[in-house]
Design a protein around this nucleic acid. Structure first.
Lengths: 347, 347
DNA sequence: TTTAGCACTCGACCTCAAAGAGTGCTAAAT
DNA sequence: ATTTAGCACTCTTTGAGGTCGAGTGCTAAA
């Protein structure tokens, strides 16, 4: 796209800012006054016509002003926006809340609640992926003849548990032996590595295997029989904030959105993509590729524990949102959550 | 209240049924036809006037028909309604879903999802109260110097974990000893009993206590430092269903309702009350005593594990709901969830 | 006690006109 | 070559006025 003249940019910027702040289509008269350039409405109208031709703004009908299009917002966030750093009170607030707990599960919840609270949008946090967590300890407990409760503890202090249906009944002694084997062989490995180590083990001649190992293999089948993506967990908070936004007044769209929240599948996919990208990322309108998010924007950032990206968080709201603030909030929250999780497990 | 004549009852019943099924105020003409009594609209009008005087129905404005009031619904569900048993397909469906898992946490989620799915309202399940669960085993794990991960497993196969801040650092050996003490002393007791046993223990001369016991006491302080009511966990599903109901078209009310869902506090209180009552219970409109539930009704039923009431479940929806079906669904789901949870932990 | 008849009320819906906002185009001004 | 004033035009919003239909309450007759 050809570079915009300084004037076009300035006008586009003010138009979008104005529209974000009061939600009304912006007319040439208003814009001329607001922009601070000494221009007449007529001149502004010419520029607006150009911007419309470029697909950056559009007009709901003849006698309304102009509103930004998705492409307009794109240009805005890419090159026009000036991110506004959080004020100290807010920062303190977030720090305080995230410092209050040390339970990683709790922290993830808190972070999501914070995001929704501070931005007044819906908060999303994808919990650290289980596969990346480091194996620490495993326990097997017999619930009934063939049903065994497996408790897997990872280094970050998270506890994962599931019930598996065993092929045959195991004695308590057998289970102790099996868990000993696990704990000895895999401590300190990431779960992904544990998985592949187990797989490799199974390839070998099973005749030669010790009983304990064989039982462990049996268990493993049950434990790691996750569907892909199921290892991730999504925490959504503040859905109710989306009720306020008039763009979604259309009940049908809102419904689709809330359904997406309860399914979580699509959102997880989206957040998962963001893990591979560095820093804050923004999806405007259809850019996310999911229909349910049509009128929405998603602002995300990955968060790191000990330098390693382990998850993503963000917010979701109407395309018309205060990007300058939201970007800062998401960014800061990602850092602080990462920090809080890193502090865990150490002194 | 004076007993209603047969005719009044019949007309009230038909009026409410009609209103529930199509949501429009019901006029005398329609009602006369529908009721099956050979009455003229004029007669029906007289009866309606009486019912209005009794506060059972009311008219939105002069030239609309009548709609039931909360009191009207009350009479309806108390003495007029004929509960309609589920059809076989639905029953099979619920049985199937609740039979598929054995994980109690999972079962609670499923039950809530089922309730919302089948009734097309919002489903609520209050998970079995932790205090009533039976102690089975406890494990202590050092996360860092003073931070200890406590994993508490109850007989029903649920895993509760929390991180506590210890007063001083404990060695691994000390922790093993402490957990041994716990497991030996408390296996098979309900958590409430464990709590009071611990309290009693603390009363005694602490000089005489063994080191292990003293440490265990220390732990206990952290573990059982729940606020009352926090032991309970509420699972809400299908909030999105509430978007469809025109009575809540008023965005403001809907907002309050969704906020109540995320706070969960009031709802827990309400469900908690229901544990003490036998069978299905219905709160219509303001009867629940919570403002946020103004235009809503809540239908609940406690569920039992081994004859013991351990939790409550139900649905929440507009006062205008198909009570005859909803009651049956809630009732059945409570039984089946109880059954599924009871089957757990045994052969 | 029930019913037919009737006047009356009130919301839903339509149309019409006026007002207001904002545009695009043209022609003059810089 | 830009910029601007002027103006005709378009389209939404608002409110007034009017009709229609649904449903009521009352009265008087059955």
């Amino acid at each position: 796209m050809a570079a915009l003249s300084y004037r076009s940019e300035a006008l586009l910027k003010t138009l979008i800012e104005r529209y974000i702040s009061d939600g009304q289509p912006v007319g040439s008269r208003t814009l001329a006054k607001q922009a601070g350039l000494e221009l007449s409405p007529a001149t502004v109208r010419n520029v607006m016509a150009d911007l419309e031709e470029l697909g950056l703004i559009s007009s709901p009908h003849t006698s309304a002003g102009r509103v930004p299009t998705a492409r307009g917002y794109r240009v805005f966030v890419d090159s026009l926006i000036k991110v506004r750093p959080l004020n100290v009170t807010e920062l303190r607030h977030i720090e305080g809340e995230l410092g209050a707990s040390q339970d990683p599960q709790q922290l993830v919840e808190t972070a999501s609640a914070l995001l929704s609270q501070v931005t007044r949008l819906a908060g999303l946090v994808m919990a650290p992926k289980a596969e990346q967590a480091v194996f620490r300890q495993i326990e097997f407990l017999t619930l009934s003849a063939n049903r065994i409760l497996v408790i897997l503890i990872t280094l970050d202090g998270r506890v994962h548990n599931r019930i598996i249906q065993a092929e045959r009944a195991y004695s308590a002694a057998e289970l102790v032996e099996a868990s000993n084997y696990f704990n000895r062989a895999f401590a300190g490995m990431s779960l992904t590595d544990v998985k592949s180590a187990l797989l490799a083990e199974m390839q070998r001649d099973s005749e030669a295997m010790q009983a304990a190992v064989r039982i462990a293999m049996d268990m493993a089948r049950g434990i790691f029989a996750h569907e892909p993506g199921e290892g991730a967990e999504l925490v959504v908070k503040g859905e109710a904030n989306l009720l306020n936004i008039p763009e979604l007044g259309d009940v049908h769209k809102l419904r689709k959105l809330l359904d997406a929240f309860s399914t979580k599948h699509d959102l997880l996919l989206l957040l998962d993509q963001c893990m591979r990208v560095n820093g804050v990322q923004i999806f405007i309108g259809q850019e996310s590729g999911y229909l349910a998010l049509e009128e929405c924007s998603v602002v995300t950032a990955p968060y790191r524990v000990d330098g390693q990206v382990v998850g993503t968080l963000g917010v979701i709201g109407p395309t018309r949102m205060a990007y300058d603030q939201v970007i800062a909030i998401v960014d800061v929250t990602a850092r602080l959550l990462g920090g809080a999780l890193s502090a865990d497990g150490r002194a």
